[in-house]
Write a protein that binds this DNA or RNA. Structure first.
Ligand SMILES: [Mn+2]
Ligand SMILES: [Mn+2]
Ligand SMILES: [Zn+2]
Ligand SMILES: [Zn+2]
Lengths: 138, 138
DNA sequence: TATCTTATTGTAATAAGTTACAATAAGAAG
DNA sequence: CTTCTTATTGTAACTTATTACAATAAGATA
């Protein structure tokens, strides 16, 4: 399972959906950075495609999320952020200094495994942000 | 540390802030249910206090969160939800059937302890929602 | 290539959330 | 109780997000 815009495009088509310039533009933008808010994405869109509208942006993000090509995440502030579904990764965010740090997948995988065996629940979270205090600020 | 509206009110005063009817109304509403969106809270507010405005609602929620009396949470849809800071508790939400389930604090505490010792990060998350598949839908 | 179906887009109106600033009132002081 | 300070509220304007529906165009079919 790959995740370049072109590969996602053909997957979209093979799922019976239609591939449009609007969807392609959004995928192109998402493929170049992560943790983008709708406003940030829209700012980039209107540069390239002057008439691009908000409803299309929000609907498309929704569509891409529902079909697993994009993941929506929260990082503490109330704003949604979007990124292409990539390898599982997690962050810590320090409430004191704001520093973000990537958490190794191994640690989280072990924790997830244990959680799943103890609860019978199958986790599908691929991107979790944990808030607290970093070692320095603690 | 208690969390009834009256007790929070006196804490707010003793912290040098002012206690207002608006803050009291919001605390009263939050003390009666959990997982409330701003829109839900506002709907209740305008019934009781006809002129209650949105800026005051959002500012007050922000204020109560920053001072630890209220916690803001996400449950998968993009909407923020608010509730009085109570004992730590966590949920699973099934992507298939939508069922929500409370996760025992003991399990999470052990997992948190391990996470903290392995990363040096001090978690302050008191309310985490984990998405995936419940035992039935798995 | 031309035609057809309908998924997807844009338009227009609305709702939710934010910001800047002047008016108000909580609570301290006299 | 009255006065004073300033934290907190409401007003007004704006930005971000959502909804309903008519116009468009992707891609299937002939
Ligand atoms: Mn990330
Ligand atoms: Mn909860
Ligand atoms: Zn820190
Ligand atoms: Zn289920």
């Amino acid at each position: 399972m790959e995740n370049t815009p072109t590969q996602i495009a053909s997957q979209i088509r093979s799922m019976g959906f239609r591939m449009t310039p609007q969807r392609m533009e959004i995928l192109a933008i998402l493929s170049q950075s992560e943790h983008l808010t709708p406003t940030q994405i829209h700012a980039q869109l209107v540069c390239k495609v002057p008439g691009f509208t908000e409803p299309t942006l929000y609907r498309t993000l929704d569509f891409l999320c529902k079909n697993g090509f994009v993941q929506a995440t929260h990082v503490g502030n109330g704003k949604m952020q979007y990124e292409l579904t990539d390898s599982m990764h997690h962050h810590t965010v320090c409430k004191e200094c704001g520093q973000r740090k990537l958490i190794s997948s191994e640690i989280m995988q072990e924790i997830y495994d244990r959680f799943e065996t103890e609860t019978g629940f199958k986790l599908m979270e691929h991107h979790l942000t944990l808030n607290g205090l970093c070692p320095d600020c603690k």
